[in-house]
Simulated assay, not measured.
Amino acid sequence: MGIIWYILIGIVAGFIAGKIMRGGGFGIIVNLIVGIIGGVLGGWIFGFLGFHTTSILGSLLTSVIGAVVFLWILSLFQRPKVDHP
């Protein structure tokens, strides 16, 4: 049952991070990938700062924060959009 919770938390975290950073989700597969990477990154960041979560809500918060940081890092590598008349 644990892996199902990780997948669900990853999907929800990726969706929430997509809403925060871009204003919309990316689709279920990309949300899952962003959420999983965000969970790992958030866990590393929180562990580095000395914080540890044990509940599902704490894991979701950690994953969302990590996913937002991940999307922000990705946005640094995108070229700026240029509007042409």
Score class of each variant (00 low, 15 high):
residue 1 M to Y: 06
residue 3 I to F: 11
residue 3 I to P: 02
residue 3 I to A: 08
residue 4 I to V: 15
residue 4 I to L: 14
residue 4 I to C: 06
residue 5 W to Q: 10
residue 5 W to M: 08
residue 6 Y to E: 12
residue 7 I to H: 01
residue 7 I to W: 02
residue 8 L to M: 11
residue 9 I to L: 15
residue 10 G to T: 03
residue 11 I to P: 11
residue 12 V to M: 11
residue 13 A to N: 03
residue 15 F to M: 12
residue 16 I to E: 06
residue 16 I to L: 12
residue 16 I to A: 09
residue 16 I to G: 04
residue 16 I to C: 04
residue 16 I to Q: 04
residue 17 A to C: 11
residue 17 A to N: 12
residue 17 A to S: 14
residue 17 A to K: 14
residue 18 G to D: 10
residue 18 G to Y: 05
residue 20 I to Q: 01
residue 20 I to Y: 04
residue 20 I to C: 03
residue 22 R to Y: 09
residue 24 G to Q: 15
residue 25 G to M: 07
residue 26 F to M: 10
residue 26 F to W: 01
residue 26 F to V: 01
residue 27 G to M: 05
residue 28 I to L: 12
residue 28 I to D: 07
residue 30 V to S: 04
residue 30 V to E: 07
residue 30 V to N: 02
residue 30 V to I: 14
residue 31 N to W: 05
residue 31 N to Q: 02
residue 31 N to A: 05
residue 32 L to A: 09
residue 32 L to K: 00
residue 33 I to M: 01
residue 33 I to P: 00
residue 35 G to L: 06
residue 36 I to W: 12
residue 37 I to V: 15
residue 38 G to A: 07
residue 41 L to F: 14
residue 42 G to D: 07
residue 42 G to F: 09
residue 43 G to M: 07
residue 44 W to V: 15
residue 45 I to D: 06
residue 46 F to R: 08
residue 46 F to N: 10
residue 47 G to K: 02
residue 48 F to S: 13
residue 49 L to G: 00
residue 51 F to N: 08
residue 52 H to A: 12
residue 56 I to A: 13
residue 58 G to Q: 11
residue 58 G to N: 10
residue 59 S to L: 11
residue 59 S to M: 13
residue 62 T to E: 13
residue 62 T to Q: 15
residue 63 S to P: 05
residue 63 S to Q: 05
residue 63 S to G: 07
residue 64 V to R: 10
residue 67 A to W: 02
residue 67 A to D: 02
residue 69 V to A: 15
residue 72 W to V: 08
residue 73 I to H: 06
residue 75 S to I: 00
residue 75 S to W: 01
residue 75 S to L: 00
residue 75 S to Q: 05
residue 76 L to D: 00
residue 76 L to K: 12
residue 76 L to N: 03
residue 77 F to R: 06
residue 78 Q to R: 13
residue 81 K to V: 14
residue 82 V to K: 06
residue 84 H to W: 09
residue 84 H to E: 12
residue 84 H to Q: 09
residue 84 H to F: 11
residue 85 P to R: 06
